[in-house]
Design a binder for these strands. Sequence first.
DNA 1: CTGAAAGCGCTTACAG
DNA 2: CTGAAAGCGCTTACAG
Lengths: 339, 339
Amino acid sequence: MGKKKISITDIAKELNVSITTVSFILNNKAKNRISDEVIKKVQDYVKKVGYQPNQLAQGLRTGKSKIIVFMVEDISDAFFSSIARLMEGKAYDNGYKLIFCSTENDKDKARDLIRLFKDRQVDGYIITPPADFEQEIHELLEEDFPVVLFDRYFEELDVSHVIINNQESAFNSVKNLVEGGFRNIGYVTLESNQSQMKDRLSGYEKAIDLYDLPKSIFKVSFKDFKAHRSDELVETYLKENPQLDALFFATNYLAKSGLKVLKKKGVKIPEQIGVVSFDDSDVFELYTPTITSLSQPIESIADKLMEIMLKQLTNIKGRNKIIHAELPGSLIVRESSHK
Amino acid sequence: MGKKKISITDIAKELNVSITTVSFILNNKAKNRISDEVIKKVQDYVKKVGYQPNQLAQGLRTGKSKIIVFMVEDISDAFFSSIARLMEGKAYDNGYKLIFCSTENDKDKARDLIRLFKDRQVDGYIITPPADFEQEIHELLEEDFPVVLFDRYFEELDVSHVIINNQESAFNSVKNLVEGGFRNIGYVTLESNQSQMKDRLSGYEKAIDLYDLPKSIFKVSFKDFKAHRSDELVETYLKENPQLDALFFATNYLAKSGLKVLKKKGVKIPEQIGVVSFDDSDVFELYTPTITSLSQPIESIADKLMEIMLKQLTNIKGRNKIIHAELPGSLIVRESSHK
DNA sequence: CTGAAAGCGCTTACAG
DNA sequence: CTGAAAGCGCTTACAG
């Protein structure tokens, strides 16, 4: 073993002061309590030996672990991992660490994870909840944990969240297709009653109603999607609906499935079919033709999530000041959405 | 506050036994020590109240936090986040948690992170080290921390690592282009003396030498890359080297830059220029034409990393049994690499 | 201005 | 077979 970890006791002994004194100085509570001389002596020594407090001990004593959990649907999804990346830095800047984990939209897995994290005295939870997860969130709130939901939320629960204006964004996406000259716009989405999916759907419907166009909705179940069956399902949908002249995809992974199918069948975009996708992706910028997409404001989302979380963390009671942030998505118009 | 956290003392009091007894039973050290009757009584009660030990306290006492750090270059990169996703599950299955963080290939940031994690009594480190990071890794080893490097390694250091056969993979990539009918193969890489980049470069050179072809190497500095200047740099490189009839990219993000440029200039792939990239990506499968790539075995890498880490964690001394795993990359031949 | 002491929730050597 | 007690490294109310 190399150098042994130095503790507050070692410092106190070495400097002939009490650990109380050292602790006060380290925690900036020395004001009007400890003489400047002693303060300086301790600070100098601490710097010299590079002492760092043991956070496990601090955590045990204070009941705070300085860890925030970031529970998303899938950490390998670019949308989530980009946000994670941004939040990581902000967390560290404020003395917190971030543990990421993936729920895979599985209620049981998410519940297990929360249990695990409670044992670890995690300080706060940022969560993209799976469907029907109200009860678990409710329990966290009951225990006064700071909780921020994002990407989706529950109407019935009094909890902070950060989302984007899904309905308006979906509406604008469809509007863009209409203005691009398309009339028969099919909507490909997930079978889900989560808020973000419901809002996107209602945005689609609102636009279709407004322009008085034929409605066509195709829902892929999450199970089929995870089993990689969405390609063939989309293919069948297209075959059965030859009247469609445009597709609006509710997520970028559905759009990727769709593009794969269209590419395979040699369908020309946008001549034969227009395309817009929710969520931007590298793929859309490089695809031929480039694909119009509704981009979510990654940076603002990360900022806002962290801002709300930190605010809750520094309050005594985590629950006060519920903040509902709705950020604007922005349509990136590319080649695929106008003939 | 909802229900108060129950502690081992509460249990002992409730059941009229000592905390020693409870602790032994919880840790399966009751064998031949505690009567079956008491064991059952405690176990039943523990289950009934859903007691979970406080891991901060356990950690303080045992010196183990049950946390593994996974330090990568950039957690929002698909290659790293996919591996992270897979490792996460394995870690949890073994009672560990994973903290991810991004070094951004910055030596100072990486060093700060390690310092931070030491205070948190992290149990093990899985790291894609930035350049010139030998000293810091060496110190971790000196202090007997389990360390596994991956993606790259240091020859001089006696430490476990998981990499792929970069040289052979690069060689095969170039070979594929040669067999596809290309002669003037340029190599676009990062200015870096990290092992994976050196090995890929030497694989390229070996193939070029073997087939007696003209060599052309273009290096983008990491600084320029991060400043998003790689697009224009690649563009200049192409302009100055009109003789090139193929490009081999050392990473998928360089390839994306290259594709952007080629697309913009309307250069036909593979008729005018062949393309192969190291690292697979969604983009390559959907691009027109599809792009040949050298795919890294994500699952095997994650498996191997975790296997080595867990093995080291369960040894008393972390340093014994250095394992060097070199996994095979596989070439996914698509349309871009043969005329 | 400074310190002795309790206590956070565990584990484990030791004694019986 | 069982328990009292020390101790991991901190923070903080209390006393002086």
